[in-house]
Amino acid sequence: MAARKTDQAQPGSTSACRPPTTLDTLVDRTFRGLTLCFAWLTLLLIIYIFWRIGGTAIPAMHKFGISFLTSTDWDPGQGRFGILPEIWGTLYSSLLALFGGGIFGVAIAVFLTQDFLPHNVTVVLKSIIELLAAIPSVVYGLWGIFVLIPLIRPLADWLHLHLGWLPFFSTSLSGPGLFPAALVLSIMILPTVAAISQDALAAIPAKIREAAFGMGATRWESILRVFLPTASGGIFGALVLGFGRALGETMALAMLVGNSNQLTLSLFSPANTLAALLALNFPEASDYEVRVLMYAAVVLLVITFLVNVAGQLIITATLRTGGSK
């Protein structure tokens, strides 16, 4: 304040500038140190999460070992636990969701980035797709139970009746099952896939676009032979991250997948996933069962962590090479 007064008295002098006082420097050092601590804390937090979940699961790991992953029983009364059906259900439902959400997500990314629509309409459509991601998964679950399952039952019955010899349609849809669950999952991962693919497609240099069109290629010839291959790294990363989201999605699956401990190829039979197993059994689990569930949590953590790290690495790597081209 004092400095400012002298400025007004002497216009043209060094105005508000003054070197930092010792206190300022001290505050600066402390604050910078604090921010560094929080950056470290982020890393420590991840390590602590792994250590904590892993540590609680160790007794169960010792007891059941690898057979936990390959056995199909889940019987707390008998003390027999195995999560092979859940691992299978998790991967199967996520792959189905990736198939649906991937095709639609990439198609929408192309639609939104390749000047199909006037700019205003694109913005509105983009917001709609983003709002899809904002709907809580428990609401999707509710919608799945009361709207989607009744809606797809005629289709499922028809497929079972006429194509029942295919293993995919070998059972009839009794209510909850893999198919409705995977359908809702694909709606949920669609915004993720669409958003990241859009970034990849938008990052294509204008020169490449102009070259493709300048050679007389039609819109789709350029998209299929030039733009998609150019953006393929980013799109692949988007699919991997979408897959990661599907693997960990809990509520919609806990409500729609049917919670049945079986290994099946049929789309219409009930199944189970790791996340749903945790959600359904944790609240009423005994102390002993909790430790077993922690083992399942470790399996889920490791699978999703690996998929996510892979997705991030792919995206980072393609963005780097894309920038240097």
Partner: peptide
């Protein structure tokens, strides 16, 4: 590293956040 951790954390299933808080 911290940036990478944060990005990876966005992909951690929400149920595992519950498992962590439980333990």
């Amino acid at each position: 590293v911290a940036r990478f951790c944060a990005k990876t954390m966005t992909g951690i299933p929400s149920i595992l956040a519950g498992v962590f808080a439980y333990s």
